[in-house]
């Protein structure tokens, strides 16, 4: 869409992200940062952050089935072929704007939820008798932990790229829940 058209429609905003999605997003971001920052030598805080993370991920997965339209997995999760095609479109600069999550963002959400969930579960296992002091489980936990740090960096880069390409501040949208109304070429 042209910049002129975008300007014309700048005033028209629609509600996309419901309050739970937004609260979840920022709470999870903060909890993961706290868990990462306390991963060496601050066990009490690290474990507390881990339990908060587990509760948030569980709530979000449930909300993905019963939540508002753009919160549902069924609305945004796409098969790998569609994700690959969308990534190619990004590379060639012609990807469509999605009102909800675009296919690449959706794949990132699935990867982050799975990775963060796995990190929380393996971390909890390390506090059980069965895996107390287990080196292999420590390794798995730290691999997942480092994996989600890498994914989170990619996630932020993807948000920045999509914000720039479609001329809208997606970080602000995740705060207010509002996005520019879809144009004729957009996917709503």
């Amino acid at each position: 869409m042209s910049a002129v058209m975008a300007d014309c429609m700048a005033d028209k905003r629609v509600r996309v992200w419901d309050p739970l999605v937004r609260l979840f997003h920022w709470s999870l971001a903060l909890s993961v940062i706290v868990a990462w920052a306390t991963s060496e030598g601050w066990r009490a805080s690290h474990e507390a952050a881990g339990y908060v993370v587990a509760a948030l991920v569980s709530a979000r997965v449930a909300w993905g089935f019963v939540g508002s339209r753009y919160a549902r997995f069924g609305q945004f999760v796409q098969p790998p072929a569609i994700v690959a095609r969308y990534l190619k479109a990004i590379a060639s600069g012609g990807e469509r704007r999605y009102l909800g999550h675009n296919p690449a963002g959706a794949a990132m959400i699935v990867a982050l939820l799975a990775g963060i969930g796995a990190t929380a579960v393996t971390g909890w296992l390390l506090t059980t008798d069965a895996f107390w002091g287990s080196k292999p489980m420590e390794l798995v936990h730290s691999l997942f932990g480092n994996g989600i740090v890498a994914l989170a960096c990619l996630h932020v880069a993807g948000v920045a790229l999509a914000s720039w390409r479609h001329r809208e501040n997606l970080v602000r949208a995740m705060v207010t829940g509002l996005k520019r109304a879809p144009g004729p070429a957009d996917v709503a």
Partner: peptide
Amino acid sequence: SLVAVLAVA
């Protein structure tokens, strides 16, 4: 340093 900044502990 993040720990210090966040004052989590």
